[in-house]
Amino acid sequence: MFEKEIRRKAKELLEAKTVDLVIGYTSGSLPFQARPILVSSPEDVGKLVWNHFARSNLARYLLPYRDSSKKIALLAKGCDARAVAVLLQEEQFPRERIHIIGLPCPGVISRRKLEEKLGEIKEEDFSWEENSFLFQGEKWEVRPFLEDTCARCRYPNPPLYDELIGEEKEPWRDGSVDYLKELDNQSREERWQFFAAELSRCIRCYACRNACPLCYCKECFAESDSPRWVNGVPTLSDNLFFHLGRSMHLAGRCVECGACERACPEEIKIGLLPLKVEEIVRENFSFEAGLSLEEEAPLLTYKESDPGEFIK
């Protein structure tokens, strides 16, 4: 899956000093994991991997370098590149400091779904392709094993890149999975039951927030002392307040990558809240975040000619 090309490109960029650092994925300590890695020397590019287990949104790993002058190359799936675009639009980085190596994304596979369908699994029993895999010699389609967050993806291809490795892909989303529709069709009471059950399991570890490339407030409202919005105890009401607050703060900014949901150690369907907010933004403003650097972000733009009376 283009691993060789990725390594070659990373080496080239580091050797030519086009960039100081490359952020990508490497093999983890557990099977079916690809974890983020920082590569700063051309000798280390062999550590880079690219597979179906690249769960993190790497744009998040740019944030600690905001105040440095480092030039950084980032391996970017569709969603990572969209997040970079939002960061650039929000003037967190100058464009010339980020070199985007775009990777059309084959979708992240859920280890849990593999285990549910295939039983006990070992890495060596698999041989992977972009759209299918062989398990003990038997061929399977990738689609049913995708993470929910990836089965609903609209943009597997990076809308913004300095170069693209691999071929552009069709989105997996085919209308067969529409989590929002399912929720929209429920009664308010049923929806409340659903979210109450999900959010009462939240331990408020903030993995969702910390995995999010666009949650970069220096002090999160959830940790503010004055005013103090929530305390440290993960009660349902404070959990709900935190997740609703986070979703609203991401309105018109969220790139629907689902990194929050994939990061949740309790497997809470936490991506659904920002997803719904983005649907509303789409309907009202015909806008999707991170698709271009030029298009104005409706909720971050003030205009005296705004037709909405309340905002003037």
Binding site: I203, C205, A207, A211, G232, P265
Partner: peptide, 25 residues
């Protein structure tokens, strides 16, 4: 430490991590 996101999943789920905060509500 580079790839750690500094969330609290490990400490909250750890059976030995006992650190706490005190606050007046």
């Amino acid at each position: 430490s580079w790839h750690c996101m500094n969330c609290g999943a490990c400490t909250f789920l750890c059976p030995t991590c006992y650190c706490f905060d005190l606050s007046i509500e």
